[in-house]
Design a protein around this nucleic acid. Structure first.
Lengths: 159, 159
DNA sequence: ACGATTTAGATCGTGCACAATTAAATTGTC
DNA sequence: GACAATTTAATTGTGCACGATCTAAATCGT
């Protein structure tokens, strides 16, 4: 990818030493700002943003294990276990140990959890309204950011 | 900005309903991945990423109040007070109430906190090495992301 | 068959993030 | 000068995020 050794001047002589910092800080703040925005949108679903992510995964595919959800969201059991217990207390999911493999815990939507999907599908649109023109619709930012995220997850994963 | 009503097909008929979600999730994951990466880089400074951000602000301008640091980082006293106490216990800063206005707490670097700057300045380079080619050096992503962040902070701030 | 290893979750401890509340000091206005 | 409104931090409570450790169950190798 960057194996080219052309001595040109199109590429800056050296990456700015603060670029990584600025980029990380911008992402750090954008992430929190998004979470705050989702907080108000998700308020009448009674969900936090991470809980909403879990519900999104289960709405797409019910009956997954804790591990499968964790892989999808890059979260471990230390984060998921208490979160899932709260979703269970809220009556949105059930946690039942698999009979085939007693190590795994299957996550199943309850009636209420399934019913919440109808409200959940409106969230993206509400978010779109809330952020207005902040997001350019051309998808370039998303593509770049996704690539960055994947590279980061890879390099963080192998450390 | 988006007041144009041209019935063309260059602009997608409608912003994808899931774009905001995908974007937010990408930022959410990238933020955590960055934090994990910083964790290992910052390990021998004995700092977490948010603590490092506070030290960066103080290295740039010593003697700020809690409020000033909070505004710079978009963090409130509920987050900063315990974090600052930990930095104080670590011997990196002092927290002293201003004599002019007893409501404010001035933050001052100790000798150790000042000395840590020498290590701190190496962090961006270490990060750059750690993430390798994940960050494109052209700055386009940073510019887009900064614009998004600022828009989000604005719309989150007025809600 | 059976000990060693790998896996899935749970548990514990530390540290952010933030809403809501409280308390103290300052400022503005009369 | 009294006093209401505002400003600044601290406190409290809830909920992520994650490293480390633990337990039990499944799987592997011989």
């Amino acid at each position: 990818m960057s194996a080219e050794k052309v001595p040109n001047e199109k590429v800056p002589e050296r990456r700015s030493p603060r670029l990584e910092e600025q980029l990380c800080f911008a992402i750090y703040q954008a992430g929190h700002a998004f979470t705050r925005l989702y907080r108000s949108v998700l308020a009448d679903l009674g969900l936090t943003y991470p809980q909403y992510l879990v519900m999104l995964v289960l709405w797409e595919c019910d009956g997954l294990t804790v591990k499968a959800v964790g892989e999808r969201l890059s979260l471990d059991s230390g984060t998921l276990t208490p979160l899932l217990k709260r979703l269970e207390v809220a009556g949105l999911i059930r946690r039942e140990r698999s009979r085939q493999d007693e190590r795994q815990v299957m996550l199943r939507l309850t009636e209420a959890g399934e019913a919440l999907r109808a409200k959940g599908v409106c969230v993206p649109e509400a978010m779109g309204r809330a952020i207005g023109d902040a997001v350019h619709p051309d998808g370039r930012l998303l593509a770049d950011l996704t690539a960055l995220r994947d590279a980061l997850l890879k390099s963080a994963g192998q450390s």
